[in-house]
Amino acid sequence: MSEFYRLIKSKNEPQMIPFLDIFGGVYLFAALYYHCSSLSTSVTKYIFIPYVAYIMLTFIIQLYAKRPDPIKCWAYSLLGQFYIALPFALLNFIAFPGTYTLYTPWLLMSFFIFIWTNDTGAFLVGITIGHHRLFERISPKKSWEGFVGGLIFSLIAAWVFSLFYDNFSLIQWLGLSLTISISSTFGDLCESLLKRTIHIKDSGHILPGHGGLLDRFDSVLLAAPAAYIYIQIFG
């Protein structure tokens, strides 16, 4: 979230209060973690009150800030919540997939492994036989061949998971891997669109040779909501 708001600042857009927005995003994650993992309902029903107060404060602050374009300040503050904080917070529903269930590490682990195998397969197949551009306007290096290769690698990983974890059937595992692989590709493309709009190459420099944390976790930002929907409906 820090990288995201810094990117917005680099575009010389109206300034928000990044510290407050980052706090709101971190609190949303922590609140959903407590909500999903706690067996006590007496506290969880109050846990989201501070976050609702943060949303209200985000709007009220602009009354006193006297900035020329408060609408953009509201929009960028809330975009960080919906684009970054909410997807990561939804991972709690994958780690605790049922009502008052125990921590389920194998399901959360599969989420990230499907993303990694998809990225690895797409890269290996893309550099080997990739010729037809997937979305040249946004990401010139991605190819349809790489996209299909990533799906195949992810399906193989799903088959391996089905051998060790029978909580899901093979069909459910395959469906989950396809859902995560396709949505993670869209997540990657959306972050590429964000950077292309701002005219930058990397979201940060915290990882030499790899860019920023937002570059490393861009796939999660759409894969997490998609996986949450899939698990709630089919899991």
Results as ranks from 00 to 15, higher is better:
Y46K: 06
I229N: 12
I152D: 07
L221I: 03
G24M: 06
S192K: 03
L63A: 04
T101Q: 08
V160Y: 15
L86I: 13
G130E: 01
P14T: 00
G149V: 04
A227T: 09
R196H: 11
I22M: 04
A30L: 11
S162K: 04
A30Y: 11
T197D: 15
L39F: 15
L213H: 12
I84C: 01
D215Q: 09
L7S: 02
F114A: 00
G25Y: 00
V125Q: 00
P68W: 01
L20Y: 15
T117C: 10
M56S: 13
S77P: 09
P87T: 06
H199E: 11
P225S: 00
G204N: 10
Y46I: 06
T117S: 07
F96E: 07
G121E: 02
A85T: 02
W74T: 13
L151G: 01
L57M: 12
H132L: 12
H205M: 13
F161D: 10
P87C: 04
S183F: 12
L91D: 05
S37V: 02
W116M: 04
F168Y: 13
G146E: 01
L207S: 10
I8N: 05
G130R: 00
R6P: 08
S77Q: 06
P18D: 00
W106N: 15
D188M: 05
D69T: 09
R133M: 05
A227H: 02
I180E: 06
A85N: 02
M109Y: 14
K201I: 07
I129M: 06
V125S: 00
I233K: 05
T99I: 14
Y51T: 14
V125W: 00
S110K: 07
T41C: 15
G212N: 08
L32C: 08
G150V: 04
S192N: 04
S143P: 04
S143M: 00
L194W: 05
I231R: 01
F59S: 05
I152G: 10
L102Y: 15
S77N: 06
A30C: 09
L91N: 02
Q232S: 12
L170E: 10
L213Q: 11
L107M: 06
A157R: 03
T44P: 12
G187F: 08
S154W: 01
D166A: 12
I55Q: 01
I55A: 03
I22E: 00
L151Q: 07
K195L: 05
